[in-house]
C-alpha cells in the first residue's frame, strides 16, 4: 500500500513539474560581495519593467560559477555573480557541459578596507608591508626561513600601537582572499625586501609567491568563512582585532567601525576610482548567452544593470558603495551586441 502511494506521489510530482517547465524569472547566484548590488538591481528591475523580480542567491563566487557551468537549460542558473574573473579551468568545465557562449560583464570596482573598533586601539594607518610582517607564517632572516617572530603590531612598525596581533581575514573560499593576498601580502613581501632575500636564497618563483602568501596559523590570523557580519561580530568582541571588510559593508557600519588608511590613502569611492587606494578589485557577472531569448528578461536585466542610471557614478549602486567603471559605455555596447568571451 505504501508502495502504491509512493508511486502515485512520484507520478504527481513529475506531472506538476512538467506543467511548470516555462520559467519566467531570471535566476542569479554567486558571490556574496556582489549580492547586495544584484539585489538592488533586481528590485529596481522588478519595479521598472514588466518582468518579475529576478531571484538572487548567494554562496560565493566559486559555487556560483560551478552552478553556472552545470549546463544549459531551464533548471540551470542564467547569471553567475563573481568577485573575481572566471578561471580557465572553469571555462573548460563550462565548455565540457555545453556552456560555450559566456558574456563577461564588469560591474565596477569594490574596495577592501581594514577596520577596527571605533573606540579601540589607534589602528589608523597601514602599509602593505605591515600586514606581510604581521601575518606571514615564515620569513627570511639571515639566509634562512624562520617562523614569524612578531607578536605585537609595534614589533612590525613602531608607529603602530603595542597591541597583540589579531586579524580577521576572509577565508579561502572568498574571492576577497585572493585580492588580499595579491595586493597586500605579496606587495608587502616585495616592499620589505623579503622577496629579494628569498630569491637570493635560491628559491624559485612559485615557492616565493607561496611563501609570501602563506598566512601564520598560530591564532594571530583568523580565517572567516562566513560573511562580513561574522567578521564584525569578531571585531566587536576583540578590542585589539582588525577585520578585513568590503567598502560598502564598512560604509553601512560607520557607527561601530573606524577605517585605516592603506599606503596613506583613505578608502572611498573616489580614491578607489582614481586608483590611489591600492586594495580594490573588479566585480563581474557572467551571462549565459544561450539563455538569451529563452528566459524572458535576461538580456534586459543585463542591460538594466549596466545602464548609466544604475551602474553609473550617480546611480544607486555607487550610492551603496560600488566604484563605477569608467568604461561603462564599452560594456553597454558589448551587452547590446551579445559579445561572448573568446
Amino acid at each position: 500500500m505504501s508502495l502504491a502511494k509512493l508511486t502515485a506521489s512520484a507520478l504527481a510530482i513529475t506531472a506538476v513539474a512538467s506543467a511548470a517547465s516555462a520559467r519566467d524569472n531570471v535566476q542569479v547566484a554567486g558571490s556574496s560581495t556582489v549580492l547586495p548590488y544584484a539585489s538592488i538591481v533586481a528590485e529596481l528591475f522588478g519595479e521598472n519593467t514588466d518582468f518579475p523580480t529576478p531571484v538572487v542567491e548567494s554562496g560565493g563566487s566559486s559555487s556560483g560559477l560551478a552552478r553556472f557551468c552545470e549546463g544549459v537549460g531551464e533548471n540551470t542558473i542564467d547569471v553567475a555573480n563573481a568577485s573575481r574573473a572566471i578561471r580557465d579551468g572553469e571555462i573548460e568545465e563550462c565548455a565540457a557541459n555545453g556552456v560555450t557562449d559566456i558574456i563577461q560583464v564588469r560591474i565596477g570596482y569594490d574596495g577592501i578596507v581594514f577596520a577596527s573598533q571605533k573606540d579601540g586601539p589607534a589602528y589608523t594607518a597601514f602599509v602593505p608591508s605591515d600586514w606581510y610582517l604581521a601575518l606571514a607564517a615564515e620569513m627570511p632572516m639571515d639566509g634562512e626561513m624562520v617562523t614569524n617572530p612578531n607578536t605585537t603590531w609595534a614589533d612590525v612598525n613602531a608607529d603602530l600601537p603595542t597591541e597583540e596581533i589579531l586579524a580577521f581575514i576572509p577565508g579561502t573560499k572568498h574571492g576577497t582572499r585572493e585580492v588580499f593576498e595579491e595586493k597586500v601580502l605579496l606587495q608587502g613581501c616585495e616592499d620589505t625586501g623579503a622577496m629579494a632575500a628569498m630569491e637570493e636564497m635560491g628559491m624559485d618563483e612559485d615557492s616565493i609567491e607561496e611563501a609570501c602568501m602563506n598566512v601564520r596559523d598560530d591564532g594571530a590570523s583568523v580565517d572567516i568563512d562566513g560573511d562580513y557580519t561574522e567578521t564584525l561580530a569578531r571585531v566587536d568582541a576583540n578590542a585589539n582585532g582588525i577585520g578585513v571588510f568590503g567598502l560598502a559593508f564598512y560604509e553601512n557600519n560607520t557607527d561601530v567601525l573606524k577605517v585605516a588608511t592603506m599606503g596613506g590613502v583613505a578608502p572611498s569611492t573616489e580614491s578607489i576610482a582614481s586608483g590611489e587606494y591600492p586594495v580594490s578589485r573588479p566585480l563581474y557577472f557572467y551571462v549565459k548567452a544561450a539563455h538569451i531569448g529563452v528566459i524572458p528578461g535576461l538580456k534586459e536585466y543585463a542591460q538594466f544593470f549596466m545602464a548609466d542610471e544604475i551602474a553609473g557614478p550617480d546611480g544607486p549602486l555607487a550610492q551603496y558603495g560600488l566604484v563605477a567603471d569608467p568604461e561603462l559605455a564599452a560594456t553597454q555596447a558589448m551587452i547590446e551586441a551579445e559579445e561572448t568571451m573568446q
Binding site: V16, A20, N25, Q27, A42, G46, V55, E57
Partner: peptide
C-alpha cells in the same frame, strides 16, 4: 536547494505559483 538569498520578493499569485515559483 537555493531558498536563501534575495528571493522572497514576488508574492505568489495562485496555488501552482505558490508551490513552484521561487
Amino acid at each position: 536547494i537555493g531558498m536563501v538569498g534575495f528571493i522572497a520578493s514576488n508574492p505568489p499569485d495562485g496555488l501552482a505559483s505558490g508551490f513552484l515559483d521561487p
